[in-house]
Design a protein around this nucleic acid. Structure first.
Lengths: 222, 222
DNA sequence: TCCGATTGTGACAAATTATTGACAATTTTA
DNA sequence: TAAAATTGTCAATAATTTGTCACAATCGGA
């Protein structure tokens, strides 16, 4: 197993390094202290997990996450002193896997790493998929927004299911009626709007993943 | 895979060469240092990607890009010290695919190459078309000007749709009214002008792709 | 170069479309 | 079967888009 710690505060970087060495057998830990070095290491090696601080000299964490995600799905755990929701959302929208607020307990970070490794290695108790700030399981009907569970009604699941399988596609109200209510259903266009409203509310900050395409319909995208 | 690096600074050329060799398996990298040689190589071989510096002896990068685009659609990544928008616009108008400002990190260039290769090899999530500095998708109603997303209203999409399918054709206000508003529409000629104004504003620097043909109408061309 | 015709533009009003809340109907649950 | 939860309808309200106009800027021929 190989993990890279991208964190400019040498002290924190060392703490993480030590915990990693203690917690996992056969682990290689690379320590880098600025964004540019990070990119070079990422170029060179393949990692199982990336620990990434947001505040970095030269290239910041968001930039790095973006660059990584252009070509790879390596799990990223983002570490940030800015614990505000906007930063979290921004991170998740770039495709990171976990967000840990500073000051964090190194033990918590180790737990998250274990969870991620389990998840990726297949023995995943909750088979959670994720999209932006959402984590969900279409088989067990579980939905989390920023790790907080929310409960969707059947019709809301149906809509979400359609959307998540048609990311970026513009779906007219008619299409949605057909797909979610069936072709024989005879009902009001506006009913779709009402359910969209309810789904948006339940998805909270992710509510605006559902875009309104004026005069056309709706489309789902982070 | 075969890539050509057209860059007169030997040092930079070598760096790119080395990174390419390290990053990609089974790659052939041709290095040339001036415009005329470049044209000869381009004549001789077929490339997967072309890395092209703007400042070159003899024939400059823009000239070369133009020549290439007369006969081929091989992806071109342009490298330029002149990071100003005008050069970018000029490059995109010649039909290049990506523009990277100097000083660039070679990692970033590699990432762009990977992204381009993915895009061309079919697994392209957004089916974006492009025209000059515009990238757009008529089915998902997405429009990007110099990679920045802008939002068009329905009537603006309709106009754009007409224009993009009639490049270089002069369309009278009447024709536009008929095509975008329908033959039964009874309204003012000048309404077209207003919508043209709005479309131009939204397309920003690409606004002047819409030419006014005095006393006749409008035509769309970069 | 000047002048009338043509086009560009900002402001506003009208029209269209979307969002929302309230409530009734329906379905599910206990 | 009653209570609770979900779903569908609808109309009021909000938001956005569209059309018109008046005036400014520009064009091209005399």
């Amino acid at each position: 197993m190989r993990i890279i710690v991208i964190e400019d505060e040498k002290h924190l970087n060392d703490i993480l390094h030590d915990y990693l060495k203690d917690t996992f057998e056969n682990i290689v830990v690379d320590q880098v202290y600025d964004g540019d070095d990070a990119l070079e290491f990422l170029q060179e090696y393949t990692y199982d997990v990336i620990l990434l601080d947001v505040m970095l000299p030269h290239t910041d964490g968001f930039e790095i996450a973006k660059t990584i995600r252009e070509t790879s799905k390596t799990p990223i755990i983002m570490l940030s002193a800015y614990s505000d929701e906007d930063n979290q959302i921004r991170g998740y929208n770039l495709g990171i896997d976990e967000f840990v607020k500073k000051p964090y307990s190194p033990k918590l970070v180790m737990k998250k790493i274990e969870a991620i490794i389990n998840r990726y290695s297949g023995n995943n108790p909750l088979g959670l998929s994720s999209y932006g700030i959402l984590k969900y399981d279409l088989t067990t009907y579980k939905m989390f927004v920023l790790d907080e569970e929310v409960y969707l009604n059947p019709k809301e699941w149906e809509l979400f299911n359609i959307f998540i399988h048609n990311i970026g596609v513009v779906l007219s109200r008619d299409t949605l009626l057909n797909k979610a209510w069936g072709y024989d259903y005879f009902g009001d266009d506006r009913t779709v709007d009402t359910h969209i409203k309810r789904l948006r509310q339940k998805l909270k900050s992710a509510g605006d993943y559902i875009k309104t395409i004026y005069k056309v319909g709706y489309s789902f995208e982070k």
